[in-house]
Design a binder for these strands. Structure first.
Length: 552
RNA sequence: GCGCCCGUAGCUCAGCUGGAUAGAGCAACGGACUUCUAAUCCGUAGGCCGUAAGUUCGAAUCUUACCGGGCGCGCCA
């Protein structure tokens, strides 16, 4: 948050150096300011001397010394030091941090939200599982990542919509209809041969059973019965999916049906555009898309020689539709097994005249469930066989969501069910929630002791002089940068890691320092500190979608 | 065969788009509850960042080649 002060100091120093002829007038500074890993290196640090070294043909240390010399006149720093082989380290005055804390407390956690998007409209499409079976654990991970990413983007200056796409026009739904139909016949006493490529799950038999129980008017004609049962089954499964998602805390703004693409004529329009531009061409009786024009990938078929569209065609149309709904940026969240599909879709948005940066992909790697130290199921892809519902019922929503957010989305996730269920110090969810409960408890005790909680807003923050207190302040305000990085890079997991780090500082402080004491002024400002901290913890947990207990 | 992702402490993982002596948590060991919640804290130990070159002031991070694991490469959906 105070980075801009450092930025100005550096720019001023360069300006001074130019004026006094120490550097050429046309020099253009190129540098970064970072928070050093080591606390001893100050609050911020810059590498400017290294980037200037080749230009000025001098040693970095000397350049750093020269610039630091010009900076000494600054009033916002305790120290500006040259360290290592040429870093310039800045230590800002404590009062700046104390003042910033007071600001954050007064204006609320929102004042720490960075504006990354500038009002940009973003559509995040995720889960998008076909209603042919219940959501498995991999879908759950995608749901958590998508939902939290949406929250993050929303808070950082984007207008966000969440969408679930359903392939209701394809063969999978027909297969579901046939599966249900055969189970239906089975249950009504007919001998049937259940083919291998039909859906094997028990839920199909249950659905068929329900159709019988509820005395649904299943048509006598087999073909009609299949499509009737396809309708019934997919609707019922979709209801179940929405229920699972709801219980998981994930809600969509829109469910988009593939069939509407055909009804609205946008598929035809897509093909027309592609043909007009010569990006679609005929060969062997099929219509092809010239992927190779945009990406390192082979050309792909749009219309098969039997006249049927491929899924690729409706996917292009779908993305055209998204852009037509005036979204500036699209985010597609897919299972990583679909990564091979990315080049052609990326090519297609370029064919439609958009920048390739307008479509971003997030890949969700497989989840391996671990129980008693061993992977659940026969395969490492056990996630395929365990439903979200089962895990949700077993470990609860909080642990489930948090665990999904504890890894980069494109990295394999080992989900330790025993750990997630533990209400102990090994479980990071409780570690964070416990910090909040402790703070709440302190506030309750303060109120009981007659401390005027309204008055803490005016507390004198200059009393917060302990090393731990200043570090806590810095970590609280760092929320700004974490949100920014998380938003810019589309990496929700950063929030989870930040929260663990943040409350770690708090727990440590708590064990060492008493907040409520006889010195009322000191008590007030420490409560102010905890108030701001509580705000960030709540905000962060809210972002992840984990509950915020007042007591534990 | 080609392409994408991953390889960091015994285990699970971070590492802020190239920075300083590579960090957490768990497991191991040793400590701290008559004091705001011990679901916590403090300390010790643990490393050739898969391997080998390259790029430069500087590489876990970028390039290339190998090794090992995962996943994709259809006029399938």
């Amino acid at each position: 948050m105070l980075r801009k002060i450092v930025t100005k100091i550096i720019h001023d120093a360069i300006e001074d150096a130019r004026n006094s002829g120490l550097v050429p007038p046309d020099i253009k500074p190129n540098f970064i300011i970072e928070i050093p890993r080591e606390e001893g290196f100050g609050d911020y640090s810059t590498n400017i001397a290294f980037t200037l070294a080749p230009v000025l043909k001098k040693k970095p240390v000397d350049i750093a010394g020269m610039l630091a010399g010009l900076m000494k006149k600054s009033t916002s720093c305790n120290s500006i030091e040259v360290a290592g082989s040429g870093f310039i380290n800045f230590s800002l005055k404590d009062e700046l941090w104390q003042q910033l804390l007071a600001d954050v407390h007064r204006k609320g956690t929102e004042s720490l939200y960075p504006d990354v998007g500038g009002g940009k409209k973003v559509l995040i499409e995720f889960v998008s599982a076909n209603p042919t079976g219940p959501l498995h654990i991999g879908h759950g991970r995608g749901a958590a990542v998508g939902d939290v990413l949406a929250n993050i983007l929303q808070k950082t200056g984007h207008f966000v919509q969440k969408e679930y796409y359903i392939n209701d026009a394809g063969r999978q739904i027909k297969t579901l209809g046939r599966s249900t139909f055969l189970r239906f016949k089975e249950l009504t006493g007919d001998a049937v041969e259940y083919e291998k490529d039909l859906y094997q799950g028990d839920y199909v038999r249950e659905l068929a059973g329900r159709a019988i129980e509820e005395k649904l008017p299943v048509p006598a004609d087999p073909e009609e019965a299949v499509s009737f049962l396809a309708q019934f089954a997919s609707r019922a499964i979709m209801d179940g999916i929405e229920k699972d998602l709801g219980d998981f805390g994930v809600f969509f703004d829109n469910f988009f049906l593939e069939s509407t693409l055909y009804a609205s004529g946008i598929v035809d329009e897509t093909l027309r555009i592609l043909k007009q531009q010569g990006i679609a061409y005929e060969n062997d009786g099929a219509l092809w898309f010239k992927t190779s024009l945009f990406e390192k990938d082979e050309d792909r078929v749009l219309i098969k020689s039997d006249g049927e569209n491929t899924y690729f065609t409706s996917d292009i149309a779908y993305h055209l539709d998204k852009f037509k709904r005036s979204f500036d940026m699209l985010v597609d969240i897919w299972g990583s097994d679909h990564h091979g599909y990315i080049p052609r879709l990326r090519a297609s948005v370029q064919a439609l005249g958009r920048n390739k940066e307008d479509l971003k992909f997030l890949l969700i790697q497989f989840v391996t469930l671990i129980k008693e130290g061993k992977p659940v199921g026969m395969s490492t892809r056990s996630g395929e066989f365990t439903t979200l519902r089962e895990v949700l019922d077993e470990v609860g929503r909080d642990a489930c969501r948090f665990f999904f957010l504890m890894r980069k989305s494109d990295a394999h996730l080992e989900f330790d069910l025993d750990l997630a269920r533990k209400t102990s110090n090994e479980n990071p969810v409780y570690y964070i929630q416990y910090a909040h409960a402790r703070i709440e408890s302190i506030f309750r005790n303060a109120a009981d002791a007659g401390v005027d909680l309204e008055a803490i807003a005016g507390a004198d923050c200059s009393l917060l002089v302990l090393k731990e207190e200043l570090e806590l302040i810095k970590w609280i305000t760092r929320y700004h940068g974490v949100l920014e990085g998380s938003s810019r890079n589309l990496e929700p997991h950063r929030i989870a890691f930040y929260l663990i780090e943040l409350v770690g500082r708090f727990h440590s402080y708590y064990n060492k320092t008493r907040v409520l004491g006889t010195d009322i002024e000191l008590t007030r400002c420490r409560l102010l500190l905890l108030g701001a901290l509580r705000g960030v913890i709540r905000d962060g947990l809210g972002l992840i979608g984990v509950s915020i207990p007042e007591r534990m």
